[in-house]
């Protein structure tokens, strides 16, 4: 990949110019990186401690599991539907709440709106803390505070999403073109009008795109929150697995899969329509 390309020797007395992609030092450095990568892979495989007996009968176990899931236990369907509706509500309310909380933080984080390094940093710390905690951990926290149920799930979804929505929104705001902002400033527009008439039209496509994408993710995330007691279809899944009713668990998993495919179709069609 880095062979020296030498030009044919030129007329007598003219120096032949050579070109190589990397300097010798860079080539040594790159070889070291490759070596380190190989060592890291070998080390990690040793660390995960594969148990040969379990590995050998894994195909049989998998087939057995699927066999026990089919046919689905349709008597369980009403509970699945209840859980599903709760999951969708959790995802939707959580997304709306996260947007309400993320917009002010995004405005604080955007350096072209808030010209204070201290406030920018505080906002970024808030965004990073929201994102660095998994929604299951947020859910455990809120279940401890508010007790089990969809309220804890909604808050978990909201707090996990603030970082995602806020970060992408802040970036969209920072990428807004300065020209129109300058024009409105020059016309004597007050700061709020500059936000709504200068920035908002520019940020709007990203805003809806981020909101839809996050809702899509949140439907998936809220489906598993029931495993820690935060409501939704996950509660039904948890109960089925604990009771070893694999025909019920299979029904729940198939439903979750269908819902995820449906939200994917819905969000992508809305996105292509409203975002121009």
């Amino acid at each position: 990949m880095s062979s020296p390309n030498s030009l044919p020797a030129g007329p007598a007395g003219k120096e032949v110019r050579r070109w190589t992609r990397f300097t010798p030092a860079e080539r040594v450095g790159r070889s070291l990186v490759y070596l380190a990568a190989v060592i890291a892979i070998i080390w990690s495989v040793k660390t995960i401690e594969v148990i040969p007996e379990f590995l050998y009968d894994a195909p049989a176990q998998t087939l057995d599991l699927f066999a026990r899931m089919w046919p689905f236990d349709w008597a369980f369907w009403p509970k699945v539907v209840d859980g599903l509706i709760e999951t969708l509500h959790t995802a939707t309310l959580g997304t709306i709440l996260s947007i309400i909380l993320a917009v002010p933080i995004a405005l604080l984080a955007a350096r072209n709106i808030t010209r204070s390094v201290a406030l920018n940093s505080i906002a970024h710390v808030l965004l990073v803390s929201s994102r660095s905690v998994n929604s299951l951990i947020w859910a455990l926290l809120f279940v401890a505070i508010f007790g089990p149920g969809a309220l804890a799930g909604t808050l978990a979804i909201a707090f996990r999403s603030i970082g995602f929505v806020g970060k992408l929104l802040a970036e969209a705001i920072e990428e807004a073109q300065k020209g129109p902002i300058e024009a409105l400033t020059a016309a004597g527009a007050p700061p709020f009008a500059i936000l709504t008439k200068g920035y908002w039209p520019q940020v709007e496509p990203s805003f809806w795109s981020v909101a839809l994408f996050r809702w899509d993710i949140n439907v998936r995330e809220s489906a598993v929150l029931g495993l820690v007691g935060a409501g939704g279809i996950g509660v039904a899944l948890d109960a089925a697995i604990n009771n070893l009713y694999w025909d019920q668990a299979g029904l729940v998993l198939a439903t979750i899969f269908a819902v995820i495919v449906a939200t994917e179709i819905v969000t992508s069609s809305i996105r292509s329509r409203i975002i121009q």
């Binding site: 020209g179 129109p180 024009a183 409105l184 008439k197 200068g198 039209p201 520019q202 709007e204 496509p205």
Partner: peptide
């Protein structure tokens, strides 16, 4: 560069 708000 005119500096219009393009999407309005």
């Amino acid at each position: 560069e005119y500096n219009l708000v393009e999407r309005l």
